[in-house]
């Protein structure tokens, strides 16, 4: 018995000297401080997957794993959204300077990672892409926009955007209160391919929307915003 115990000790100590013992900590197993993480997968999974989906698709917020969207959106705008968030919407600011958890270089990793992984060069060839930037300068006309909606959108979203067989209501005042104008514009241009909404080129039945038509239909949607009455608890 004593001899067995002694032998076992010796064996154990010899083992502890090896590199390959299971208990020996590996240098790469060191836990990183949250601001030291530089792997895109980890950064995305911890910070974005909740809203934009595990795989970058089929999340509640727009798909980022979408070549058409990435062809439309300029990287510096993507960066700005991540860093400073979109005020008044559910997109939070992530930059340390804006009270978020990520350093500038981590945000760079995210912007580059989204592009490297999910962009496909020839995603939209042969079409002129309507400009990403909407803003006041886009000069949409509400009246024309209503007509564009009726012809391009109503078959899914119902008359005047009250909800139809293949898409929910988009003129709903609560919905419109929670999204930015840019989000509406991005959606009209890039669609939501993961949920079955076509991009500005339509799904074959109609001609692609012109940049003017895009601005018009967004102007009409924005004009549907109404104050949402509160309720007393």
């Amino acid at each position: 018995m004593t001899r067995f115990i002694t032998a076992a000790f010796a064996a154990m100590l010899a083992l502890a000297g090896c590199d390959a013992v299971p208990g020996r900590p590996r240098p790469d197993a060191r836990e990183l401080a949250p601001t030291e993480v530089m792997a895109f997968e980890t950064l995305y999974a911890r910070n974005c997957a909740g809203c934009h989906g595990q795989t970058g698709r089929l999340g509640a917020a727009r798909a980022l794993n979408d070549p058409v969207y990435l062809a439309v959106a300029p990287p510096e705008r993507v960066r700005r959204v991540i860093a400073t968030g979109v005020p008044g919407t559910a997109q939070p600011p992530f930059a340390l300077s804006a009270g978020g958890p990520l350093t500038d270089s981590q945000i760079d990793v995210l912007v580059r990672g989204i592009k490297d992984r999910w962009q496909r060069p020839g995603a939209v060839t042969g079409h002129q892409i309507p400009p990403y930037d909407g803003g006041r300068a886009a000069g949409g006309d509400v009246g024309r926009g209503r007509a564009v909606f009726a012809s391009a959108c109503a078959r899914c979203h119902g008359d005047d955007g009250r909800g139809g067989p293949r898409g929910g209501g988009v003129a709903d005042s609560s919905y419109l209160a929670l999204v930015s104008d840019q989000h509406l514009r991005t959606t009209v241009i890039a669609g939501r391919s993961d949920l079955g909404m076509p991009d500005w080129r339509g799904d074959g039945g109609t001609a692609p929307l012109t940049p003017q038509q895009v601005s018009d239909v967004v102007a009409w949607l924005v004009a549907q915003r109404r104050p949402v009455p509160g309720r007393l608890p």
Binding site: A49, C51, G53, G59, A60, P92, S174
Partner: peptide, 20 residues
């Protein structure tokens, strides 16, 4: 809130308001 994705089955077929 940022890491646990809304399950895909609760995203599909939801209206824009429900997604919000």
């Amino acid at each position: 809130w940022t890491a646990a994705a809304t399950p895909v089955r609760y995203v599909k077929g939801r209206t824009p308001l429900e997604l919000q």
